[in-house]
Every structure is written in structure tokens, then in C-alpha cells.
């Protein structure tokens, strides 16, 4: 009996001493599941620097698969239909929108796993109150980060955990990008007709992607090496091969919440120049280093992009 009481006391004490952020991490996982498994329809805006775009979204979870129709409301009516891991993007006749752009996607809609242990190594989670967004009460969770990444703020619907709003913040707390639902119906009945792309059949152009199951990324045989990484980032994708007539080595890294990609290729324009450009939270740094073009693109601070660009070592370049 004494032993049992002791065990209970230990459990109680252990439970009480869990990190204060434990609940926030639970909400984060709840959010990821909710984004993919909740039925909802709504409209959201996305602000990136000075650019604002608006979308409508209809989402249904059916037999273990997400069905989603995303429509761009400003400019050309681009439509994206997602069924599981297959995306089809429709463009209207005479569209000025370029197929060179990436296919639109709502936040976390394609993230099938959150490595909370890794994320919690890089971010500190705190609840900073509750706010009302698009008619729903949301818990506001701040994910504070070190100097190498941006902090993030998430508004999570109190009952379902659905992401209602998110922001990326620089070190001064300035909002660099914002996603926000302006109208939302959670647990709505989604009819089949709502998921039917309006442009299907009439669209002059369309492109589709299917997410392939990736093996463990491997850059062992690459001619270039990255000699420094901010803590918490891991290689998520690696490619080496010819792109636009040039041998290119490409690596993508993620810390679970944000990511960057490093491109290395031999020779290019902009000799002896370094150019830095930004759009919202995305920084792009192009540098020339001993005859190689180094490009870092990612949702990372300038200081991180600059440091990464100096940490590339090129050994032997076959092509």
C-alpha cells in the first residue's frame, strides 16, 4: 500500500513538473490532424510583404483521404483540386498567371507528420491568450525562436484545433507574413458539387503533381558540402542532376516548421556579386563563390541565409 502511494505521488509530481509548453505541443499535433481531417469551408487571405491574396477553400475528409478545392479569388480564378497526395491546378483561358509558379497550397495541408521533439528543440511554445477569429475562439500560441529562424504565432480553434490564423515574425516582432481565415464554417456538410472544379474541362491549361514517397534523402555523393546548419534543421530532400543545361545540386532542410533550400551550380551570371532579395518572410541570396553559384532560398532571416551561403565547400565538380 505504501508502495502504491509512493508511485502515485511520483506520477503526480512528475506530471506537475512537465514543461509548461507540453499542452501547446499537443495542440500543435491536434492542429495538423484537424487541418487534414476536419470538414470545413471558408475564405482566407494571405499577406506576404505588401502583397495580399484571397482564396476560398472547401475541404472534406472522406475514407481516409483529404478532398479539397482551393480557388484564387483575386485576379485569375486559379483552382487547385487536391485528392489525397495528388494536386491538379486549373488555369482559365487567357490566364496571365504563369505555370512557372508553384501550385497554391494552404498551410500544413500537405504536412503528414510533425516531429514535435525536433520542433520543441528549436522553438519555445507559450500560450499568449485567446482571440476571436472568423467567428471562432482561438488559443493563441507563440513559438519563439533563436536568431537563425523566425518566430511564429498560431491561432488554433479551441474545440477542433483547426488553424485559423498564423503569422511569421522577425526578431523585432514585425509581421512578415500572415494567413487568416475571414469566413469559416467548421464541421460543415460538404456536398460533392462544392468540390467540383469550375474550370475542369473548360480550362485551357492545367498542371498536376503527385507527391512521391521519398527515400531517406542522401547527399553523400554530392560535389558540394554544407559545413554548417542552424541547430534543429535536417535534410529533407536532395537532388543532383542537370537542370536547364547545368549540373545543379539542391538540398532542402526543415526544422519542422520552416525550411530553406540551397542550390549549387557551376558558373553563372552575376560574377563577383552577391544579391539579396526578399518577399515577405522569404529571403533569397545569390552569391558567386570561386566560380560556383550559391543560392539560398527560404523562410529564414537574412543573417541565416548569408551565413549558409558562406558555408558551402565544393570539392571536385565532375560536370
Amino acid at each position: 500500500m505504501m508502495l502504491l502511494r509512493l508511485v502515485l505521488v511520483v506520477i503526480a509530481v512528475t506530471g506537475a513538473s512537465l514543461p509548461a509548453s507540453a499542452m501547446e505541443w499537443h495542440w500543435l499535433e491536434q492542429m495538423r490532424v484537424a487541418v487534414q481531417q476536419t470538414d470545413y469551408r471558408g475564405e482566407f487571405v494571405h499577406r506576404r510583404g505588401d502583397t495580399i491574396s484571397a482564396y476560398s477553400i472547401v475541404h472534406r475528409y472522406d475514407q481516409g483521404k483529404s478532398l479539397e478545392l482551393l480557388q484564387q479569388l483575386d485576379g485569375d480564378m486559379i483552382e487547385v483540386f487536391r485528392e489525397g497526395e495528388e494536386l491538379v491546378c486549373f488555369y482559365p483561358e487567357g490566364s496571365s498567371s504563369s505555370m512557372n509558379h508553384p501550385i497554391p497550397a494552404a498551410p500544413f495541408s500537405q504536412v503528414y507528420e510533425l516531429d514535435l521533439d525536433r520542433i520543441s528543440d528549436s522553438y519555445m511554445a507559450t500560450t499568449v491568450g485567446e482571440e476571436r477569429v472568423a467567428g471562432y475562439i482561438a488559443r493563441v500560441v507563440l513559438l519563439s525562436a533563436d536568431q537563425w529562424r523566425y518566430s511564429q504565432k498560431l491561432w488554433l480553434e479551441k474545440d477542433t484545433g483547426l488553424l485559423l490564423q498564423s503569422e511569421m515574425l522577425d526578431t523585432d516582432g514585425k509581421v512578415l507574413e500572415q494567413f487568416r481565415f475571414t469566413r469559416l464554417e467548421i464541421n460543415a456538410e460538404i456536398a460533392e458539387s462544392e468540390l467540383q472544379p469550375k474550370l475542369e474541362g473548360s480550362a485551357q491549361r492545367q498542371q498536376s503533381t503527385f507527391r512521391m514517397k521519398m527515400n531517406q534523402p542522401d547527399d553523400e555523393s554530392f560535389n558540394s558540402q554544407l559545413t554548417w546548419l542552424p541547430e534543429g534543421f535536417q535534410l529533407t530532400h536532395a537532388f543532383a542532376g542537370m537542370q536547364a543545361d547545368k549540373w545543379t545540386e539542391r538540398r532542402s532542410y526543415s526544422d519542422g516548421l520552416t525550411s530553406f533550400t540551397v542550390f549549387v551550380e557551376k558558373g553563372m551570371a552575376m560574377k563577383n556579386k552577391t544579391s539579396l532579395a526578399k518577399m515577405g518572410a522569404t529571403n533569397a541570396l545569390m552569391a558567386e563563390q570561386s566560380g560556383y553559384a550559391i543560392t539560398v532560398v527560404g523562410e529564414i532571416p537574412t543573417v541565416t541565409a548569408k551565413k549558409l551561403a558562406t558555408q558551402i565547400e565544393v570539392t571536385a565538380w565532375a560536370m
Binding site: 494571405h46 506576404r48 491574396s53 484564387q72 486559379i78 498567371s97 504563369s98 512557372n100 509558379h101 508553384p102 501550385i103 497554391p104 497550397a105 494552404a106 498551410p107 500544413f108 495541408s109 500537405q110 504536412v111 511564429q152 488553424l163 498564423s166 507574413e177 494567413f179 503533381t209 507527391r211 529533407t236 530532400h237 537542370q243 536547364a244 539542391r250 532542402s252 526543415s254 519542422g256 516548421l257 520552416t258 525550411s259 530553406f260 533550400t261 542550390f263 553563372m268 551570371a269 532579395a277 518572410a281 522569404t282 533569397a284 545569390m286 553559384a293 543560392t295 532560398v297 527560404g298 523562410e299
Partner: peptide, 23 residues
Amino acid sequence: RLEFYLREHAEQASFTSGHVVVP
């Protein structure tokens, strides 16, 4: 070149981060 890289990065980012992809 940068536009091409941006697209490649955005596609990868949508699988491993919560970043919104917009054209």
C-alpha cells in the same frame, strides 16, 4: 533562375513546413 528556384523551394516547403504556397 531565381524564379525557378523559388518554385522548387516552395514545393518542397509545403511538405515540410507550414508555409502557405501562393503563386
